[in-house]
């Protein structure tokens, strides 16, 4: 029996659902439609001959149960259960190098499709996404609150023991070593460069307007709360700065 669905494959070859799908069909369809409706979808997926050149050159395929060819095939054939299954773990293996895209004779971008699936996994609050991103929260905190992904104080021997003893070959306080960088913007330790307060406030507007904060709240509510507090503080600082500017202007005018 064929379900009422817009899925191209289901209309032509029938319902690929197994007897006991992990989620109801309507939910699986909703997930697929979220992937498919992204404006990038048709650009990234153009057909597939199963040639496998993408998987042959894929670094993640060397080490994980991951195949870009499989990702493309699942999406091309609209295999709803397979797509959902791949979103549990496989999509997080991709290293985002885009070797697959450069090599694909059809102009597909499996790496780009993986990004659409990751975004959708987050939108649907999949537990797998929450688990995978938990160790990444320090980076997300830094990026969303400051606009810098990486800061000097994150690079230390405690966090990166496997990088060995030579993270810095000169024994001196981090602050002093950063002051010795001949670019004044880089004399910082908590951000990669000094970020203008106005810049941060503008970035927060972008996060809000584009739904990024909502994504964050879905995967990590605690982190969302922490970042919201930081944003409130910086916005207050910016308001204070503007008020001070007004006061100064008034004084001059008087």
């Amino acid at each position: 029996m064929s379900h009422a669905t817009g899925s191209r494959v289901q209309q032509h070859i029938g319902d690929p659902l197994s007897a006991e799908p992990a989620l109801p069909l309507t939910k699986l369809e909703e997930i697929f439609k979220d992937i498919q409706s992204d404006l990038r979808f048709d650009h990234e997926l153009n057909g597939c001959l199963n040639c496998g050149i993408c998987t042959a050159t894929c670094p993640a395929a060397h080490y994980y149960d991951f195949s870009p060819r499989e990702i493309v095939q699942l999406l091309w054939t609209e295999n709803l259960e397979g797509i959902y299954d791949a979103m549990q773990e496989k999509i997080w293996a991709c290293a985002q190098c885009y070797t697959c895209a450069a090599r694909c004779p059809f102009g597909n971008s499996p790496g780009g499709l993986v990004m659409l699936m990751r975004e959708t996994a987050i939108k649907h609050g999949m537990q797998s996404a929450k688990n995978v991103l938990r160790p990444f929260s320090r980076v997300m905190l830094k990026l969303i609150s400051t606009g810098n992904q990486l800061s000097p104080d994150m690079i230390n021997r405690d966090h990166f023991a496997d990088w060995g003893p030579n993270i810095s070959k000169i024994e001196a306080p981090l602050k002093l070593l950063r002051q010795a960088i001949p670019m004044p913007t880089l004399n910082t330790t908590a951000t990669a460069w000094e970020v203008n307060l106005k810049t941060s406030v503008e970035l927060y507007t972008i996060w809000e307007e584009t739904g990024v904060l909502k994504q964050l709240e879905t995967v990590d509510e605690n982190l969302f709360d922490v970042i919201s507090d930081i944003m409130d503080e910086k916005r207050e600082d910016w308001k204070d700065f503007l008020a001070d500017q007004e006061d100064e202007k008034d004084e001059k005018d008087d």
């Binding site: 990004m115 990751r118 975004e119 996994a121 987050i122 990444f136 810098n148 584009t210």
Partner: peptide
Amino acid sequence: TDQTSCTAWNYHGSGIG
């Protein structure tokens, strides 16, 4: 100082964005 990173490292790593 008036610049952010492109935020794409985080995007490609996490899907947040």
